[in-house]
């Protein structure tokens, strides 16, 4: 594991978040880690969804480094799953591996996660 490289990437990601970068979700968006994402379609959320905070609250137990590294769960950056598959995995989970979040996260929040994950650049590629 190249810890230093990954930390550098994460630092870039955090800088992007600090700068308040926001994008609209799409099927295959490019979003830097930690960026604020305003989910679509309408109705718009009451406030911007902070993906970094959401990730820390829901995903970090298993997915290391905001999804940049393999942890107890797989590395999310560079996933080969389609956006629709990522959505389904977050919503429904995977039995014995990952809980589903459809009862605790809104569709907009899951959309934001999908945009974030599909936008992650694989630090190992």
């Amino acid at each position: 594991m190249n810890v230093f490289a990954s930390q550098a990437l994460l630092a870039v990601a955090m800088a992007a978040m600090t700068a308040g970068i926001g994008v609209h979700a799409a099927d295959e968006p490019t979003v830097e880690p930690g960026a604020e994402v305003t989910a679509t379609p309408a109705p718009p959320p009451a406030k911007p969804i902070n993906v970094k905070t959401m990730f820390a609250m829901n995903c970090s137990w298993c997915h290391d480094g905001y999804g940049l590294h393999a942890g107890k769960g797989p590395k999310l950056a560079g996933t080969q799953m389609t956006a629709a598959q990522v959505y389904l995995r977050i919503a429904k989970g995977k039995s014995g591996m990952m809980p589903g979040f459809e009862k605790t996260l809104s569709k907009d929040q899951i959309d934001a996660f999908v945009a974030y994950i599909k936008g992650l650049k694989d630090p190992d590629s």
Partner: peptide
């Protein structure tokens, strides 16, 4: 390597995950 993140509090008595951090082993 851990970063603590200020988490939003779930409803009291809800049993929902109340967790705020990201890390890399």
């Amino acid at each position: 390597d851990i970063e603590v993140v200020k988490a939003d509090a779930p409803p009291a008595f809800s049993g929902q995950t109340y967790f705020g951090a990201s890390w890399t082993s």
